[in-house]
Amino acid sequence: MAEQLSGKVAIITGAGSGIGRASALRFAAEGAKLVLGDKTEAVHATARAVQEAGGQAVALQIDAGLEADVEKLVATALQQYGQLDVAFANAGISGGRAGIFELTPEAWTEVLRVNLIGPWLMVKHAGKALADAGRGGSIICTASVAGIRSGAGGPAYSASKAGVINLVMVSAQQLCESNVRVNAICPGLTETGMTQPTFDYAREKGVDHKLGRLNPLRRAAQPEELAQVALFLASDQSSYVNGQAIAVDGGLSSSHPVTRQLPGQTAV
Rank of each mutant, 00 (worst) to 15 (best):
G193I: 03
R203K: 15
D249T: 03
T198E: 13
Q265P: 09
I185C: 07
T259V: 12
L214I: 12
S239T: 08
D200N: 14
A234S: 07
G250E: 02
G251R: 01
S160Y: 00
R149T: 10
V241R: 00
L262V: 12
S238F: 03
P257V: 13
I246V: 14
L189H: 05
R219S: 01
T192S: 05
H209R: 13
V229C: 03
R219C: 04
G147C: 07
L226Y: 04
Q196D: 14
Q261L: 15
S239W: 06
A162T: 01
S171Y: 01
S158K: 04
L262R: 15
I148Q: 13
I165L: 08
C186E: 04
P223D: 00
V258T: 12
G153V: 00
E177D: 13
L214T: 13
Q265E: 15
A156Q: 06
R219E: 00
P197G: 10
G243W: 02
N215S: 06
A156C: 05
S238G: 14
A146Y: 00
T192D: 11
I185N: 04
L231A: 07
L211I: 03
R213T: 13
E177C: 07
G153E: 02
R260A: 13
V180S: 05
R218I: 00
A230Q: 04
R181L: 12
S158A: 15
P197Y: 07
N166F: 12
T192K: 04
R219I: 00
P263M: 05
S253R: 01
A230T: 03
A247E: 00
P257F: 03
A227Q: 00
H256L: 14
I148C: 04
R149S: 09
S235V: 09
L262E: 14
D249G: 00
S144M: 06
A227H: 02
Y201C: 08
S160G: 06
A172T: 10
V182C: 06
G193A: 10
V241C: 07
S235R: 08
G243I: 12
Q261W: 07
Q228W: 08
Q261R: 14
K210G: 04
V248T: 02
S178K: 05
E177T: 11
S160K: 01
L167Y: 05
K161R: 06
V241F: 08
N179S: 14
S238D: 08
G153S: 05
N183L: 06
A143L: 05
S178R: 10
T195P: 04
Q196R: 15
L211E: 02
A245G: 04
G243Q: 02
K210S: 11
R219Q: 06
G193D: 12
S150M: 11
T198L: 15
G153N: 02
